[in-house]
Design a protein around this nucleic acid. Structure first.
Lengths: 224, 224
DNA sequence: TCAAAAGTGTTTTAATTACACCCATGC
DNA sequence: GCATGGGTGTAATTAAAACACTTTTGA
C-alpha cells in the first residue's frame, strides 16, 4: 500500500496530490431482430488496435463523467441524445498498458436503426455484436465492464421496466416481451407477462393497430 | 462540453491527457444499541474544518480505489480489516472547492465496540451518528453519498443477507432482526422474519444459549 | 383459405402476511 | 414469582406459474 508517511501527508487533497487520467466507457446496448446487441469499436490509433473496445475516452477538466460518456459516444459513433446510467469504477493498477487510468462505465440504450453508425476519426471499424456472440479479442477489462453493465440493465428492466430507447415510442406487447426475453436471456409466458406488465400501470394502449404484422396487435406507449 | 477539436484529439489517453485527483470516501456503518450509525469526522486541516465528513482521502499512484478506501479508513480512524463495497463515482465540477476532484464511494460494516476510534493526525473529532440524526453541516456532497450508500446497503441486506461485521460472529435471531429493522427502517414480524431467514439456509444454530438475556436465546452463526 | 401471430381467464401452486400462546430466564 | 424476551405454527391472503382456445391478419 506504499509509503505510510507519504500517504499520511497526502491524504488531504493538496496541490501536490497524485493525479490520474480518467476515462468513461460506454456499454451501448441495442435491440434489433429480437436480439440484444452491444456496440464495439476498433481504433486506428493508440493501443489495442487489434482489439474490440467499448466506446470510451478521457475525461476533460470541464466535464463530468456523465458528460464525458455522452461526448465519447458522439465522437466515436455519432450517436447522441441517449441518457447514461453509471455502472461502476475500475481502478486496477495495470488495466491500461501505458499509464494509470481509472475508468467509470456507463450503459445506454438505443435502437440501432435510429442511429446509423458514423465512421469517425480514430476508428477503423464499429459493429453491433449479439450479446451472446462477443468477439474473443476484447481489450482492456472491457469484457468485465460489459458483464457488469448487462447485469445492471437486467436488474433495472426487471424491477423498473427501464428500457430507454431500446424500443420505438410505440410498440406491441410482443415486441416488449421479446425485448425482455433477449435482455434476461430466458423465455417468458405470454399471458403471465402481459398480466405482470399491465398491473404495473406504466403503459397505455394507443388504440392503434400495427400494420404489416399478422394478428393485428395494438401499439402501446409509456404512460407519461 | 468544451472545445470539440481539442476533445477529438484527446479522446485517446496520451501523455498530455487531463489528469485529475481522485479520492475514495468511506461510509462506515456501525450497529449499536439497536441503531444503525455512521462514522463522521471533522478534520483539522484543509477545507471544511467546520463540517462533518466521511473518512476519505486521495488515491495514490500505486493503489486501487479499494485499497485507497481501506487506507484512508485506517489512517483517519484506525479501523482495519473491513471489506469494502463500491457504491458510486461522483464527478460534479465544483464538488471540491479548490480543485477538480472525482471521488468514488464505498461502504463498510463494523461493530463500533470492536473498533475503538483512534484519534488520528489531521482529525479533530470522530463520532458515530445515528443514521436518522445526521448533523446539518455535512461537507462536500457527502450527504448524498451517505444516502446512496445506505440504499445499496439496504438492497444488499434484503437480497443477500450481507451484513458484514455489523454483528458479532455469533448472534441471536432477535439481534439479527433488530439489525434488519434498523437498516431498513421498518418493523418486522418476528415469526415471519425467522421463517424467511431460516429458509435461506445461510445460518446455523450453534446450540449455545446466550447468557445474560431473558428467555435463553440460541446463538447462530453464518454457515460456511 | 390457411398459416402465423394476437388476445384473453382460470386453476393450481407457492409465497407472504397476520396473528397468540407457552416457555425460559434474569431480576 | 413475575416481568421480559424467546420460541413456535396455522389459517388467510396475495402473488406467481401453468396452461388452450378463439380471433385477426397477411400472404
Amino acid at each position: 500500500m506504499g509509503n505510510i508517511k507519504k500517504d499520511l501527508d497526502n491524504i488531504q487533497v493538496v496541490s501536490t496530490s497524485f493525479e490520474c487520467s480518467m476515462t468513461a466507457d460506454v456499454a451501448l446496448f441495442g435491440f434489433n431482430e429480437g436480439e440484444l446487441k452491444i456496440l464495439l469499436t476498433k481504433r486506428s490509433v493508440g493501443l489495442k488496435k487489434n482489439f474490440w473496445l467499448l466506446p470510451g475516452g478521457i475525461m476533460e477538466e470541464e466535464e463530468t463523467l456523465e458528460q464525458c460518456a455522452t461526448k465519447v459516444l458522439l465522437y466515436l459513433t455519432g450517436i447522441k441524445n441517449v441518457p447514461m446510467q453509471q455502472v461502476k469504477a475500475y481502478s486496477k493498477l495495470k488495466r491500461h498498458d501505458v499509464k494509470r487510468v481509472v475508468t467509470v462505465s456507463f450503459y445506454a440504450l438505443v435502437q440501432p436503426k435510429n442511429h446509423p453508425i458514423e465512421q469517425k476519426v480514430n476508428v477503423t471499424e464499429t459493429k453491433w455484436f449479439n450479446i451472446k456472440e462477443l468477439p474473443k479479442k476484447i481489450g482492456f477489462d472491457h469484457k468485465e465492464i460489459i458483464t457488469d453493465a448487462l447485469k445492471l440493465l437486467q436488474y433495472n428492466l426487471n424491477h423498473h421496466m427501464t428500457f430507454g430507447q431500446l424500443l420505438p415510442e410505440t410498440f406491441t406487447l410482443n415486441e416488449l416481451q421479446s425485448l425482455y426475453e433477449a435482455v434476461l436471456n430466458e423465455q417468458l409466458d405470454r399471458r403471465n407477462f402481459r398480466k405482470r406488465i399491465s398491473q404495473l400501470e406504466l403503459l397505455e394502449n394507443t388504440g392503434i393497430i400495427k400494420k404489416g404484422v399478422k394478428g393485428g396487435p395494438f401499439l402501446y406507449r409509456i404512460l407519461k
